[in-house]
Write a protein that binds this DNA or RNA. Structure first.
Lengths: 120, 120
DNA sequence: ACTACTGTACTATTACAGTAATACAATTTT
DNA sequence: AAAATTGTATTACTGTAATAGTACAGTAGT
């Protein structure tokens, strides 16, 4: 379960996002146990408190549930994860398009830019 | 000179970015005087110190220059602004594509998504 | 039972961005 | 000359994110 983080952005939501992705694409399955708070903290070179907070956020969303003393487990509602990932895709795309428009690009210019980026 | 800011992100670099755009697209011309630190702070509902910091950043980049007691003026090198805007476009596009890949989208899926977003 | 692991809770500390208020210096305007 | 406006500098405060350290509670394996 590799977690890659961008240290220049808030870490907690990034952890939530990554786990959400792993659930949505089936890498983490319903009922499955996930890495412990301390374990993931070491792997991601992050403070256990930060991981704890992220897991609690995912619990509120119904993606994880905790069993005290035993561990954290993936929730039963796998579709929820896909919904969240989709909304992330949409919101981040809107944000990106807005920025590009601010920077003076038309929709067509944006598409051309992305097409050329494919060939790198 | 309208400045629109996203309060959920660091303000200082946003101000720098917006001014840079205004210079690159010719809204602000070489030698022209820009709004005063205090004036812009009021217009953008932001602290004067933050504007001051942003202007100093733009001075380092050669886009603005200050005359004590008189005001801030647009520098002579208009091409520099365009270069900076272009590098912003490229870096933010790379970042966006990276995020979308993390979220499980292929290049083709991203292009389709953006094409459909055009028709909103 | 014991040990090791787990989640949970709490306080203190650090770092950073932005705010707030004030004072001073230089130029422009009147 | 005086007043107003500008840039500049300094200090203190606030809110937030993350770290650090510690302690406690529940579970699992031996």
């Amino acid at each position: 379960m590799a977690i890659k983080l961008d240290k220049s952005r808030p870490i907690c939501p990034q952890i939530e996002e990554q786990i959400c992705i792993l659930i949505s694409n089936g890498t983490l399955k319903s009922g499955e146990k996930v890495m412990s708070v301390r374990e993931l903290a070491v792997e991601a070179s992050v403070n256990p408190n930060t991981v704890q907070k992220a897991f609690e956020g995912l619990e509120e969303k119904g993606l994880l549930k905790s069993v005290r003393g035993s561990g954290w487990f993936v929730g039963e509602n796998g579709e929820k994860a896909k919904d969240i990932v989709n909304s992330l895709i949409i919101s981040q795309t809107k944000e990106y398009l807005g920025r590009m428009h601010d920077l003076g690009l038309s929709n067509e210019q944006i598409l051309n830019l992305l097409r050329s980026d494919d060939n790198e």
